[in-house]
């Protein structure tokens, strides 16, 4: 299966993995490592959103699954005393089940309707967490969450970094497999044309639900990881910003590709932190907004398509240069 990947891509992947593994050796600055941890979590989250978008379903409320995974994992870990390494998957499982429920209400809906339902769902979940579920969740006050790796263990930050890196790589490989499988092809077929997909014997409802479940599961993992990394959980997790970030990452990197969320997250994190260093406040968001819009208009396939676009552009320029003396213009 590896053989059908282009050589250059294989080198790039290997390079990325080596860079990620070597990072803590290159710097003893824990801020960089901490930033990298948050970035890895964002990559998982963005990949989850991307997977759902691959099946033609653009969610505006993925923070709901992120938060549900985080809350479920925390509550299980606290009440049963299980290590977060296990509970993140339990939390993700809960997120997946709820993802299916939301998916059920969405399967018949068109793009905007679906966006609205998911957006509203995040708000409803937040309201439930701070009202009806408050005795369990601590309401707005939030509750402490056990750390993924206890700070009592020496070098815990690096163990945590490598653990999250491993989970990130595993997630990406899993998504890669899914997208190559029959299910992945079905997602793409549904996104391109639902009627044709149906004619080809694909059951759109089943596959859309599957996409919802997998996406919610992965988003739940990301949420649980982030909360076990931070050590405290509050309902702010369900905020609108948290739903918008993964979208921004994916659009910048390249929608519908495996590398898109990764490249987009890394690029945007670097831009974001760099702008912050210059002391910018609101201007940061304005710049991110402009980058997003320019990407959508001029680079609709995201940064991953930049190399081929450059090659195309160079070729066109070259051709022009060649024709220039002939036409005499």
């Amino acid at each position: 299966m590896l053989s059908n990947i282009p050589l250059s891509l294989r080198y790039a992947t290997a390079l990325a993995v080596i860079a990620a593994v070597a990072l803590p050796f290159l710097t003893d600055n824990m801020f960089i490592v901490n930033l990298a941890v948050l970035m890895l979590i964002a990559i998982i989250f963005a990949s989850a959103w991307n997977l759902l978008a691959c099946s033609g379903q653009g969610s505006l409320g993925h923070a709901a699954f992120f938060g549900i995974g985080a809350y479920a994992s925390t509550l299980v870990a606290v009440s049963l005393g299980i290590t977060p390494f296990i509970t993140i998957f339990i939390g993700a499982g809960v997120a997946a089940v709820i993802g299916i429920l939301i998916g059920l209400t969405c399967v018949r809906l068109k793009e905007w309707f679906l966006a609205m339902v998911t957006f509203g769902f995040a708000i409803i979940v937040q309201t439930l967490v701070v009202s009806v579920l408050a005795p369990m969740t601590g309401g707005w006050d939030g509750i402490p969450s056990p750390r993924l790796v206890s700070p009592a263990i020496p070098g815990y930050q690096l163990i945590e970094y490598y653990a999250i890196l491993l989970i990130t790589i595993a997630t990406i490989i899993a998504i890669w497999y899914i997208m190559r499988s029959k299910a992945g092809l079905a997602f793409l077929a549904i996104r391109e044309n639902e009627t044709e997909a149906r004619a080809a014997g694909i059951d759109p409802v089943r596959y859309r639900l599957l996409a919802f479940a997998i996406s919610a599961f992965i988003a739940g993992i990301a949420g649980a990881l982030q909360i076990h990394h931070i050590g405290y959980i509050t309902p702010e997790l369900f905020g609108v910003d948290n739903s918008f970030w993964p979208i921004t990452y994916v659009i910048l990197g390249g929608l519908g590709t495996i590398a898109g969320p990764i490249i987009g997250t890394v690029a945007l994190t670097v831009i974001w932190e760099g702008l912050k260093e210059t002391g910018m406040t609101f201007a940061r968001y304005v710049i991110i907004g402009i980058i997003l819009i320019l990407t959508i208009i001029f680079l609709p396939k995201g940064l991953v398509s930049l190399p081929e676009r450059l090659v195309e552009w160079m070729a066109r320029k070259k051709r022009k240069m060649e024709t220039h003396p002939l036409t005499g213009k």
Partner: peptide, 22 residues
């Protein structure tokens, strides 16, 4: 296999880095 190799690599790196970090 590559998954296992990566996993082993990460664990090894964690141990080494953990020591230096300390």
């Amino acid at each position: 296999y590559s998954v296992f190799i990566i996993a082993a690599l990460l664990i090894a790196a964690a141990c080494i880095a953990g020591c230096t970090q300390q």
